[in-house]
Amino acid sequence: MPFLQPLRRLSDTVNQAAIVICVACVLIMLGISFTAFLYKLATGSSLSWTYSLARLFLPWIGFLSMTISLRYGEHVAMTLLVRSLPRVLLKLAAGLCLAVIGVFGLLLLWYGWDYFLGASQVYMVSDRIQIPGKFTAVVMPVSGAIILLHLVQGFALLEHFIDDETAIKELIETVDTETTETEEHA
């Protein structure tokens, strides 16, 4: 299906953006924690706002990393059980799995959007730092939309269809290619 190809590229691009955002959130959290550590070393007292501010990034890391793991087939699966099924039942089980993932994405989008619209609280990180609740609430519908977008990848999301022999050969070829390139540069 040629119309799926641009959507698959978009899915890959969105996945790369989610990875960058997750890494940025982790680095920001580490930066905040390191700032608190240095301040404690320098002054002997603690900054009251560091823990509260750092934890606001946890929902972003959790929800976006869920979409990243889905894209790479690293979600919870009963691979051994499913692989023991005949091919017809394997496809049926995979289709049902994708349907359940789709329903989850829809529910996350639907209820997450309502949650986002209703988020009126303000996180009082400190006297001067106030973060709207919408900052953390928006990640729910965004993650639902990303999950639904990743469904264009089809059975590639499910590790049931990864051929072990092919995967092993690809890994060996990659290692051999890297070894050859390293030897040529030396």
Rank of each mutant, 00 (worst) to 15 (best):
Q121A: 14
E159T: 14
E178H: 14
M140V: 11
A24H: 01
E181L: 08
Q16N: 08
V142G: 01
Y72L: 02
I146F: 02
A145I: 06
R87N: 11
L58A: 06
S120I: 11
L58P: 00
N15C: 13
W60I: 07
L27F: 09
I101K: 04
L85Y: 10
M1I: 04
E74A: 14
G105H: 08
I146E: 00
I131K: 01
V122N: 03
L149D: 03
E173D: 11
K134V: 09
L96F: 15
L171W: 04
I147R: 00
S65T: 15
F104E: 09
V14K: 02
W110C: 05
W49M: 08
M29F: 05
V26S: 03
P6K: 06
T177L: 07
G95Y: 04
A36C: 00
A94Q: 09
L80G: 10
T35V: 06
T177D: 04
Y123D: 07
Y115A: 08
G112E: 04
P2M: 08
V142D: 00
L4C: 08
H160S: 02
A119Q: 04
L148E: 02
V14C: 09
G44K: 01
T13W: 15
C22V: 15
C97N: 11
V125Q: 00
K40N: 05
V14I: 15
I32G: 00
T13N: 09
Q16G: 12
A137S: 05
S46R: 07
T13V: 08
V138E: 00
V76W: 10
K91L: 12
I131A: 00
I131F: 02
L157F: 05
R9L: 11
L85D: 01
L4K: 15
E74F: 11
F63T: 14
G112Q: 01
R87E: 13
T166K: 11
A186P: 02
W113D: 07
I162G: 01
V26A: 11
S126H: 09
K40A: 11
L158H: 01
T136V: 15
V139G: 04
D176V: 08
L92A: 14
P2I: 13
H185G: 02
W49A: 13
D114F: 13
G144D: 02
V122G: 05
V20W: 08
L171S: 08
L158A: 04
H150I: 02
F3T: 08
E183Q: 05
L27N: 04
V76S: 06
L108G: 13
V82E: 06
L4D: 09
G62C: 13
D114H: 12
H160P: 00
R83Q: 11
I61Y: 00
V76P: 01
L106S: 09
L70M: 10
P86E: 07
Y111E: 07
S33E: 01
P6V: 05
Y123G: 04
L38C: 03
D12A: 12
S120Q: 12
A17M: 07
F3V: 05
C25L: 07
T136I: 12
T174Q: 04
L89M: 15
F116E: 03
V138F: 03
L47V: 10
F34L: 04
S84V: 06
L151E: 03
A99F: 15
